[in-house]
Simulated assay, not measured.
Amino acid sequence: MTAIRPLRINGLNAHGDFHVPMATTEAALVASYARGAYAATKSGGISTAILYEGVIRTPAFVLENLLNAGLFVEWVVTNVDQLKAAAEATTRHGKLVSVEPMIDNNVVFLICRFTTGDAAGQNMVTIATNALCDDIVARCPVPLKAWYIEGNFSGDKKASFLGLVTGRGRKVSASVTLKADVVERILGTTVQDMLDYGQVANLGAHLSGQLGAQAHYANGLAALYIATGQDAACVAESAMGITRMEARGADLFCSVTMPNILVGSVGGGTSLPSQSAGLNILGLKGAGHGAALAEVVAATCLCGEISIVAAIAAGHFTRAHENLARHR
């Protein structure tokens, strides 16, 4: 495990200079993210904010017919307060913020959305949702043919349109305006060259049907998730979002918006020795740091986007991998 050079973040929850730990064997990855962090810090740092929060679980209920599905949804809507109480009785930290029905003929999915405190919260919301379902089974007068704790609608560990639009976890936006001289001196290219390549890259994203449009969130996400004890499989859904690059006078505005950041500063693998050390490097171990950790994740991904776009725009991408990976 290694850490990239100090990254300055001016966020709603994350403030200061952070040494970001990365667990990876790819030398070029660490160098690239470190370069992006250096350029962002030299331009005043990255602004970050959490826009939305809500981990979802989507149980599915099978009924006899469409009429019974409608009656079932009517009963759920009128009993939300009792269902909320049943779910929240299983956790001190989780709060059920909404139950949204989705009907497909005789099958009903309930989108159960929770806040999870400082934990990533996947086990938390599963246990809470199971209690909610048990309460439905015990009290609902509409006969059920079957029910399942997850109907494969939530996007758990999968890229999905639902996740891109509504989010699953913490939705975070991060941005920085890179000074033109920083782009030239540190990134070895120009603002216009980065914009020109960005236009082609966005076209490629649209033509290939990407969910969102970005270069490579997954690289930084995987390294940071493993280093801090997160569920690495969640990279599958976390690596979605939108990268933007626009001219701001002579300078370059860069941003990422990521709707599915699933991280926690407590729970899961965060207490393992190496992963605990990773969180301590960040200064974000334990209660009260979950939101700041999510902002650090988005800021780190922005650093990677800046560096890879600059490398490809300048024609340095292949040479960097040859020097740092093949011939190191």
Results as ranks from 00 to 15, higher is better:
residue 106 N to A: 14
residue 71 L to A: 14
residue 173 S to V: 14
residue 223 A to H: 03
residue 291 A to V: 00
residue 222 A to L: 06
residue 129 T to N: 10
residue 71 L to K: 07
residue 7 L to A: 07
residue 141 P to G: 03
residue 319 R to T: 13
residue 167 G to K: 02
residue 230 Q to T: 00
residue 322 E to C: 07
residue 185 R to Q: 12
residue 153 F to T: 07
residue 78 T to E: 03
residue 252 L to Y: 05
residue 221 L to T: 06
residue 291 A to Q: 04
residue 205 A to F: 02
residue 90 T to S: 11
residue 60 A to D: 00
residue 228 T to L: 12
residue 152 N to Q: 06
residue 65 N to Q: 07
residue 183 V to K: 08
residue 42 K to D: 03
residue 32 S to V: 01
residue 27 A to G: 08
residue 239 A to K: 04
residue 300 T to H: 12
residue 159 A to H: 04
residue 195 L to A: 09
residue 38 Y to T: 14
residue 204 G to F: 12
residue 16 G to A: 02
residue 327 H to V: 11
residue 61 F to C: 05
residue 304 G to F: 02
residue 2 T to M: 11
residue 26 E to T: 10
residue 142 V to M: 05
residue 241 G to T: 06
residue 14 A to I: 11
residue 105 N to M: 05
residue 72 F to D: 02
residue 161 F to T: 13
residue 249 G to K: 07
residue 284 L to K: 09
residue 209 G to H: 09
residue 306 I to H: 09
residue 135 D to Y: 14
residue 98 S to Y: 00
residue 59 P to L: 08
residue 267 G to Q: 08
residue 175 S to Q: 02
residue 113 R to P: 03
residue 66 L to I: 03
residue 60 A to K: 03
residue 45 G to Y: 03
residue 258 M to L: 13
residue 102 M to G: 02
residue 220 G to I: 03
residue 43 S to V: 05
residue 318 T to S: 07
residue 31 A to E: 12
residue 20 V to D: 13
residue 51 L to S: 00
residue 83 L to Q: 05
residue 34 A to W: 02
residue 180 A to Q: 11
residue 93 H to D: 08
residue 115 T to N: 09
residue 189 T to L: 11
residue 160 S to D: 02
residue 251 D to E: 11
residue 137 V to R: 12
residue 97 V to P: 10
residue 76 V to E: 04
residue 142 V to A: 08
residue 117 G to D: 02
residue 204 G to Y: 13
residue 75 W to C: 10
residue 193 D to K: 15
residue 49 A to M: 06
residue 207 L to H: 09
residue 213 A to C: 12
residue 126 T to H: 06
residue 57 R to G: 05
residue 274 S to Q: 06
residue 327 H to W: 09
